[in-house]
Every structure is written in structure tokens, then in C-alpha cells.
């Protein structure tokens, strides 16, 4: 079970998640410091490790819209947060699958900061309110990459199979 640490609205763009001005920093090991840099309170919570791994950020629809920058995923992955949103933008979704960031598509999610949630493959139970919400499962094509541990090992397997 994990706690909701922050709530965000609709159309949270990659510029909010990882502002363009930090894009010269590319290595996944270096990006976490800039997560949500313009939302000072959230950035501080993450960077100062004030919240445990697996903490949840809840958003409305179209999370991750905008650019293809993979830093927007590696920065969140670095903090081991789980994102629950009503839906996610396409490139962000694929990047998350490729890098192993857990996204939970939950079209009807209702949760507030401080609520305790139990997340499984097919549902989210809000233990605080007692309500249950349906989760849209990963596409089988994405699941294959997730099961391989991400796109790098997946492609490596393909490369080895080629010869």
C-alpha cells in the first residue's frame, strides 16, 4: 500500500515534468534532480527523499503530453514514484514502458493527497475512501517489453537472436 503524495490536473506536459532548460542533462543517473523543477514543493519532496519509494502521484487526463524527451521518464523513474492518471500521452507511455516506469491508467480515479491506495494489475483500491477503480491493462505488445525488463534488454535479445 502506498500514499498519494501529490495531485496534479489535466495535460501535465513534459515541460512541467522536466523543463526544457535542463535538457542538456541527458544521462538517466543525472536527471532526477530536475523532476518537476517548476513545482518547487514537489521537487523538494522528491529530491530531499522526504517520501518513500513507490509513493503515488495522481493526475487527471493526458499526463506526459508534449515532447518526446526521455528525461521526463528517467527523472521520475529515478525517484521510483508511481503515476496514476486517467490516461497518458502516447510517446510518454512508450518511453515509460521502455525505461520501466510504472504507469497506471485509471480512467475514473478519485484520490486525494494523503489517501492510501492499493494498486494491482486490474484495480486501484482507495483504502481511505473504500472505493475501487478499474485499471486499463498494458497492451500485450508493451507487456513483452516490460517482461524483458525494458527495451534495452528486449532489443539485446533480438540482436542476439539475429546471428
Amino acid at each position: 500500500m502506498s500514499k498519494v503524495i501529490y495531485k496534479l490536473g489535466e495535460d501535465i506536459s513534459t515541460d512541467i515534468i522536466y523543463p526544457g532548460r535542463f535538457m542538456a542533462t541527458v544521462l538517466p543517473s543525472e536527471t532526477p534532480q530536475f523532476a518537476f523543477m517548476d513545482l518547487k514543493d514537489l521537487n523538494k519532496m522528491l529530491v530531499n527523499k522526504e517520501v518513500p519509494k513507490g509513493s503515488i502521484i495522481v493526475a487527471d487526463k493526458n499526463f506526459g503530453c508534449g515532447s518526446s524527451r526521455e528525461q521526463a521518464v528517467s527523472t521520475l523513474k529515478g525517484h521510483e514514484v508511481v503515476i496514476i492518471a486517467k490516461n497518458f500521452a502516447r510517446i510518454f507511455t512508450q518511453n515509460s514502458v521502455n525505461l520501466g516506469l510504472q504507469l497506471v491508467i485509471c480512467p475514473k480515479i478519485e484520490a486525494n493527497v494523503g489517501d492510501e491506495l492499493e494498486v494491482s494489475d486490474n484495480k486501484v483500491i482507495n483504502k481511505t475512501t473504500g472505493k475501487t477503480f478499474e485499471v486499463i491493462p498494458n497492451h500485450p505488445a508493451q507487456q513483452a517489453i516490460i517482461d524483458a525488463g525494458g527495451l534495452i534488454p528486449y532489443t539485446r535479445q533480438r540482436l542476439m537472436a539475429k546471428s
Binding site: I91, L151, T155, L159
Partner: peptide, 21 residues
């Protein structure tokens, strides 16, 4: 279409886009 850097690394390796619905 747009893709992320890791997916591009995969394209550079295999010459195909993997798992496109």
C-alpha cells in the same frame, strides 16, 4: 512519428520499429 531516445537506439540496432500497433 516521434519516439524516445531508447526506442531510437533500438531502431539504430535493428532497423525496425518494434511493437507498433
Amino acid at each position: 512519428f516521434g519516439i524516445g531516445a531508447t526506442e531510437m537506439a533500438s531502431v539504430w540496432t535493428l532497423g525496425t520499429a518494434l511493437n507498433v500497433p
